[in-house]
Design a protein around this nucleic acid. Structure first.
Lengths: 156, 156
DNA sequence: GCAAATTATTTCAAGCTTAAAGTTTCATAT
DNA sequence: ATATGAAACTTTAAGCTTGAAATAATTTGC
């Protein structure tokens, strides 16, 4: 997956393969840096941050299944992360719907404050780490990735 | 990180944040699909595939530390993955250098054959999954990501 | 009503991942 | 020689991740 710079492959379809490799390396590099900073600066993790980011955008709360769909991870995974966030007092489960299978998950007051703080710094990190990409290129790239995604989605 | 499509953020630096989010979602989506197919079709995993891909390009073998640097993962991580590949007979460690701290890791005959098979299919998957990206856009995107990376590297 | 199928979530086992601590080996400077 | 430190690797503990199995609640079809 992360095959690299050495023997530049050629042939039909190689451009897409090369694109995929770059994409993966870019995101892994940035992810690693963010993970390290989140740990050092805020003593938290990327998955926790992801969950909190999703919940921050949904003040009314989200179902576990919404979270897992949105974050592109498995159900069982979300259970564990939310468990930890709950035990840290940042997130609360409310099982008081008509449907008693579900639980509405939302940020606590503290969770919301905490996330806002981290998110601001996080955004400045992204600005720093992607600083060499011009805003113009950023928009262009985003557009390409978006159309790729919307095309690809709706399979399976 | 994987914050999504709903309330389009705006302001200075928001373009880069949005780019990062798309980048991450794109790579996670593809990664998830590849992981699933590797499991179903070849009963293997992405990390194993990554290690084998790296070794395939280095017939003379690689040190553990080379592997971990190249794959952008930690040392301890590589130890575990190589352990499993060794126990599956796909990879061999040779501790016969002058330097007895190191071990040269390489694919076995079987590992090499196995990887070649998987890699061919893998490439066709990428072609399929990125099919909607024109070869032209693929080259352009790759260029942007490359320059981003080479600019960003050399920090730390 | 009620059995069967579906949906939402949790639990579990196996594997991946990191950071930090530990082990062994090597290089250097006394 | 021998300490001192650095380098290569492994081990460990904690957490993330998946896919599959288990639980529980709801919905559907008779």
């Amino acid at each position: 997956m992360v095959a690299g710079p050495l023997p530049a492959p050629s042939g039909p379809g190689k451009d897409r393969l090369r694109l995929w490799i770059r994409l993966l390396r870019a995101s892994r590099t940035i992810e690693a840096e963010l993970r390290e900073r989140l740990k050092k600066e805020f003593n938290t993790t990327l998955p926790r941050f992801d969950v909190m980011a999703a919940l921050y955008r949904a003040p009314e709360g989200m179902l576990m299944s919404d979270l897992s769909r949105f974050l592109l991870v498995s159900n069982g995974n979300v259970t564990g992360i939310v468990d930890r966030l709950v035990s840290e007092g940042l997130v609360a489960r409310a099982r008081r719907n008509g449907d008693r299978r579900t639980s509405m998950v939302r940020l606590t007051e503290e969770g919301s404050r905490t996330f806002a703080t981290i998110a601001a710094v996080h955004e400045s990190w992204i600005g720093e780490l992607l600083g060499k990409v011009s805003e113009d290129d950023a928009r262009r790239l985003t557009g390409m990735l978006t159309s790729f995604r919307s095309n690809w989605e709706g399979r399976e």
